[in-house]
Computed example of a mutant assay.
Amino acid sequence: MGNLKPRDILLATALLAGFAAAGAGIVALVQDSTEARIAENRMAVNRNRIAELTGELDYRNDPVHDTIDLDHDLLGGAHLPAWFARDADDEVVGIVFSAVAPDGYSGNIHLLIGIDRDGELQGVRVSAHRETPGLGDTIEAERSDWIRSFDGRSLGDPPAEGWHVRKDGGVFDQFTGATITPRAVVRAVYRTLEYFAQHRDELLATRPDATGSVVEPLPHNEANGDNEANR
């Protein structure tokens, strides 16, 4: 070490700096590539789900790129994306809402809910949850047909008193050994229909270049309702 010359030290330092810079560059390239791939995969998944939830609607745009964020208690949170399906005249024929059921058995249940311009449900799908495997996960379309029981429903079909699981006097089935999970989903779907009914004119008036929230953010403390006794 004592025989090292200043030039040798400078050379070693330069080499180390070069290796560090090269390593950082490689990491950045890999990260950019990974993030781009994740974004592409997410867009492909969203496109497939939106296609499912726009049913037989006659739309001409790509809803994945026609989106705004919504903030409202009835939807269960803030910064929730909604995607718009439009006809050839850019009129809204349907919307796929993101909604959160905050009162699932194991926490939030994230939903995608398709509604046409007349307020009829085109479909409901679960996008994320932590419900009990073998019990609560029956809300997944891949696990059972239960989630398809919302197809064609609307705010008045069934009447308000029917928007509950059968255990609570409603028309929707609960699961054997699990009531909280379907109860939470039914409530979230009904609240989303309420939201659409209350803001229908604003929503249908949005244009393809709309950005941000179409309604003012509201307090969200009510969205965190108390869990009820379940099973």
Rank of each mutant, 00 (worst) to 15 (best):
L75A: 05
E120V: 01
L80R: 08
D90K: 13
S127T: 13
L112R: 14
G55P: 06
D103A: 15
G94P: 09
A128L: 09
Y59F: 15
D71I: 03
E120Y: 14
D116F: 01
V124K: 08
V93N: 06
R60W: 10
L80G: 08
V96Y: 06
D66H: 13
L121H: 03
L121K: 03
I68L: 14
G107V: 00
D69I: 14
E131P: 05
V92E: 04
R60G: 06
A99Q: 08
P133M: 13
G55V: 02
L111H: 09
D69L: 15
P133I: 13
H72V: 02
D87F: 00
V100L: 14
R86Q: 13
I115C: 02
G104Y: 05
E131L: 11
E52P: 07
L53C: 04
R125C: 00
E91N: 14
G123P: 00
Y105I: 05
L112N: 04
I113G: 06
D58A: 14
G55W: 02
S127G: 13
L57N: 02
A99C: 10
G119R: 10
L80N: 09
I95T: 01
E131Y: 12
G107L: 05
V100M: 10
L74E: 06
A85R: 07
S127V: 10
P81I: 05
T132L: 13
L111M: 12
E91A: 15
R117H: 15
L80D: 06
R130M: 13
I109K: 02
G114P: 08
R86F: 12
S106N: 15
P102Y: 03
R130C: 09
A88N: 13
V96H: 04
I113P: 02
Y105P: 04
H72N: 15
W83R: 07
V64S: 12
L121W: 00
V126I: 15
G94E: 01
L111C: 11
D71G: 03
D118W: 12
D73R: 05
G94M: 08
G77D: 01
L75R: 01
L75M: 13
L111K: 08
I113N: 04
A85C: 10
I113D: 04
R117F: 11
Q122H: 06
V93A: 06
D58L: 06
A51Y: 02
D71T: 11
G123S: 04
I95D: 00
P63D: 01
I113M: 09
L53Q: 00
A99S: 15
G55Y: 03
A78E: 12
L57R: 00
R130P: 04
D90W: 13
R130V: 06
G77V: 06
F84Q: 08
D87V: 09
D103F: 02
Y105D: 00
Q122I: 01
A128C: 07
E131S: 09
W83K: 05
V64C: 06
D58C: 02
G114S: 10
A101H: 02
S98Q: 07
L121M: 11
L80K: 12
G76H: 08
I68W: 12
F97I: 05
L75K: 02
A82T: 02
V93R: 08
